Computed example of a mutant assay.
Amino acid sequence: MDSTALRVYVRDASLARIGQIDDYTSLNVIPRFNTVGAFTMEIPADSSKAPLLVEGNGLIIRTATGDTAMSGPIRTVDWSRSASDAGTGKLTIGGVDDTGLLAQYTCWPTPTAAIGSQTDSVYKISAVKAETAMRTLVNINAGPGALTARKNTTLTLAADGAHGGTITRQVNQFDNLLTTLADIGNAAAIGFRVVQVGSSLQFQVYAPADRSGIARFSFGLGNLLDASYTTTPPTCTRAVVVAGGQSSPRVCKTYDRTDPLWPSLILEQFVDLTSVDTSSVDLAAQMDQAGAEALTNGAGQGSLAISPIDIPLLRYGRDYQVGDTVAAQLRGGTWYTDVVREVTLACTAADGTKTTATVGGGDSSASTVARIYSYIAQVKKDVARLKTRKAA
């Protein structure tokens, strides 16, 4: 096995480690920032380890340095054979990371009450740190503080690091827990994940680091194989926030944000806060936050894909992680910095691990407009001005 190859261990339904897979032919691991990652693995069907790979068991995937790249349940075990296959064919194992556990739960408006006693229409978060709010939502809806019938006995919470700014918001009744956490985390520029630690699944919140001074990729440096970027137009440039109107007077306010590629484009979007009592002392804060989230979620998006090469002085997992900020030199020689949204670790036991990173785009970032999108807009304007000068 190559020294950089990923190590794969199998766990049973109780999270106990029951064996190691050291004869896989290929393995793709895709950690993602603030959403569910995935893995696929191919292995000969006649492998002596094949009986371990069944639905209900899971994988713990570690880097060559011993860090956990991902852990999660096996969802699919598919068999196939072609004329060129040796032996009895191959198995393709698919699964998701343990962060997917959060998608199985909703946010109850009154988490301490039975389902027949849900009298509130929202769950309110008032002036707490973003991490504290996220931990509370996980705890009372799925973790140790949840109702017995809802509690996941394998789920624990890491210590509260008080990451992120102070937030005030309302969570609509039965909103998906994972989606709600992603909204809070992306707005606060903090990350979260669920990963196996010992015999439990631990919910962790972390503050990504700015590695742009260290993690720098360019063709000139020889550590970049390819790069490309794409853009997606905005869906909202004006948020129309409406509060009250049921048991209290209606209050309406608009929030505007100019798109850098289409500065004259106006796209209005209704933001429903009619469940909020307009006599609330934090009405303005709730409306401001709802407007900002709608504009961020509806902003034009850019996606940058780079294929960096791990070199002794710069490696994924050691020098940068998903969620960290890195730098890449692109069109025109300009250095661009943004968040690593996704990484694909493609590994074979013989050739080791190759890394492809997706930077920017994806879920909305904490910036007013995703920085990659602003960067691409500026590049296109600069190119247009250059063409105009040549034409003249």
Rank of each mutant, 00 (worst) to 15 (best):
A45C: 09
Y375L: 05
I125A: 06
G245L: 04
I266D: 04
G87T: 03
A284R: 14
Q204V: 13
D288L: 05
A305E: 01
R238V: 14
V322H: 01
V369Y: 04
D382E: 07
W262M: 14
D175T: 04
W108V: 00
R17L: 11
L91M: 06
Q286I: 02
L181K: 12
T296W: 01
V128D: 10
S307Y: 00
V241K: 15
W335N: 02
A284E: 00
D67Q: 09
G300K: 12
D46E: 09
R315P: 15
N176L: 06
Q204H: 10
Y123E: 14
Q196E: 12
V322D: 11
V251L: 00
S26D: 00
S279D: 04
R315W: 01
K253C: 09
R315Q: 13
L52T: 05
T254N: 07
A215F: 03
G143M: 11
S248I: 05
M1T: 03
K390Y: 09
T76K: 02
T254Q: 14
S374R: 15
L295S: 08
T106M: 03
L267N: 07
S47M: 06
I190S: 13
A243V: 05
L225R: 08
F192T: 06
K49M: 08
Y320D: 05
P234Y: 02
D2E: 10
S117V: 06
F217Q: 04
T88E: 12
D120Y: 06
I93K: 05
T156N: 14
V276Y: 05
T278N: 08
D363A: 10
L91T: 00
T132K: 08
Y229Q: 06
T136M: 11
A149D: 15
I61P: 06
K387S: 09
G94H: 04
S264C: 04
V197S: 15
A188C: 08
L273Y: 13
S374D: 01
Y255G: 03
P111S: 13
S82L: 00
A83I: 04
N139R: 15
Q269L: 09
I306C: 03
A328V: 12
I266N: 07
A142S: 11
W262N: 15
V194T: 08
R211T: 08
V96G: 09
T40E: 15
A64Y: 11
E131G: 01
A162Q: 10
G222R: 12
N139D: 07
I18N: 03
R341K: 14
L330Q: 03
D351E: 08
V281D: 06
Q329E: 00
Y105T: 06
G87D: 07
V195F: 15
G66A: 06
G116T: 08
C236P: 11
G220I: 00
L224K: 02
C107Q: 04
T368E: 02
V197Q: 15
R371D: 10
Y9E: 04
I21C: 11
A290L: 02
P73G: 13
I140W: 14
R318T: 14
I61R: 10
I167C: 07
N141K: 11
E342N: 01
G66M: 10
S367Y: 12
R250S: 11
S84F: 01
Q378G: 07
Q246Y: 11
Y375P: 00
T258S: 12
E293I: 02
K354G: 00
L265W: 01
S364K: 15
E131S: 05
F203A: 07
R318F: 05
D272A: 07
V96T: 07
G352I: 01
G362W: 09
L178H: 08
Y320Q: 01
F192L: 10
Y255D: 02
D12A: 08
